[in-house]
Write a protein that binds this DNA or RNA. Sequence first.
DNA 1: ATCACGTATGAATTCCTATTCATTTATTGA
DNA 2: TCAATAAATGAATAGGAATTCATACGTGAT
Lengths: 134, 134
Amino acid sequence: MARPRKTDQLAAMTDLVCDDRVVHVDAVRAARAALPEGPTLAGLAEVFAALSDPTRLRIIAALAQNELCVCDLAASVATSDSAVSHQLRGLRDLGLVRSRREGRLVYYALDDAHVTALYSQALDHVGHPTTEDA
Amino acid sequence: MARPRKTDQLAAMTDLVCDDRVVHVDAVRAARAALPEGPTLAGLAEVFAALSDPTRLRIIAALAQNELCVCDLAASVATSDSAVSHQLRGLRDLGLVRSRREGRLVYYALDDAHVTALYSQALDHVGHPTTEDA
DNA sequence: ATCACGTATGAATTCCTATTCATTTATTGA
DNA sequence: TCAATAAATGAATAGGAATTCATACGTGAT
């Protein structure tokens, strides 16, 4: 069933876990107990991934100021309408952004306080110079 | 030099910015003023990217409990030593993690309060069930 | 010195993601 | 109805990223 282990405790731990050797059993036990569950982990990764792209960060920073229509958003963050639209779709699928149509224009706004909070916290930590500070 | 614009104000804005049409000049101006500068933006994206991968997230969650050597870390997060080592290099290059050698073992620990704070804030927002809650 | 073990590294593979370009849909005005 | 504009979408391309496998490095023990 398994190969022999150095100690019973160790064997119990590693069998419970995986095939690798464990040095500090208690530390590993504690670490594993602290791991978020699969869905939680995936959710975290998703949110952070949304914030991991410069274009999306600019979009979020822009929308943190005003609601904006797609073309204004594109002009604001200096990318193509299409690229912005693609990104907005992703952000909307994640529930981070909401849209509202008015005539031919579609306005987007932030729709998730968590993400906004994460963004500004990160900005605080980094120190937040903007173009208006120049 | 450029194509005709609907208004002078609009023309001034767009020339200052890019080649796209702008609908709400003031909104765009405000949005652009709020954009973080290039290096800041890149730094933000980097940090969030570090948190955007499930494996790295598990590593961070594990190290939030104890300092761990590579093989214990691998056992904790249930991936190969090699994969963990690769990820640790990245995290160390970003200054998120520090290492300490003791004999043949190398212990890693978290080394950036910002990231730890971001992680736990995100965890709070999501709600944080772990395996020990079961 | 040699061996075993823990860790690190490089190359290769595979998967994912962001942008671009072309096209389509939706809405308004002529 | 037709033309024009804003936005969305799909396919394609290109770049990046994570894991695996093989191998090398560093350290301690025999």
